[in-house]
């Protein structure tokens, strides 16, 4: 068991954070730390706009950083569960990223 960091890009909407936090509890994972901020500088995320053919505006999306300690074997499952949440646009761990349905084998976030 080692501490892992997950990065999420999600809609900045009421209730969205609760879905992520709730998912950790429902599936039996613990959150060690959590940080969330609306994104003002969208430059870094232009690749998502391009990839998914969408357009972000200032403060419309949030970046969420979660640290969690879980077995390696569970990481893929956690990523997939988070990716399934309707308001999550992208999620990554150290070596993979889900851009909604699309899986990339590197941390793009």
């Amino acid at each position: 068991m080692i501490e892992r960091q997950l990065t999420l890009i999600m809609e900045n909407k009421p209730g969205a954070l609760a879905r992520v936090v709730g998912l950790f509890h429902q599936r039996g994972y613990n959150i060690d730390s959590l940080h969330v901020d609306p994104i003002k500088d969208l430059k870094k995320y232009e690749f998502i706009e391009k990839e998914l053919d969408i357009k972000f505006h200032e403060n419309e999306i949030s970046k969420l950083i979660i640290k969690t300690t879980v077995a390696d074997s569970l990481m893929r499952q956690i990523l997939r569960q988070i990716n399934k949440l309707i308001e999550v646009i992208a999620v990554s761990d150290n070596d993979s990223t889900y851009l909604k349905g699309i899986l990339r084998n590197e941390n793009l976030l």
């Binding site: 809609e11 309707i86 646009i89």
Partner: peptide, 8 residues
């Protein structure tokens, strides 16, 4: 069209 929802 929900930009954050795109099931396979």
């Amino acid at each position: 069209n929900i930009r954050s929802y795109n099931p396979p």
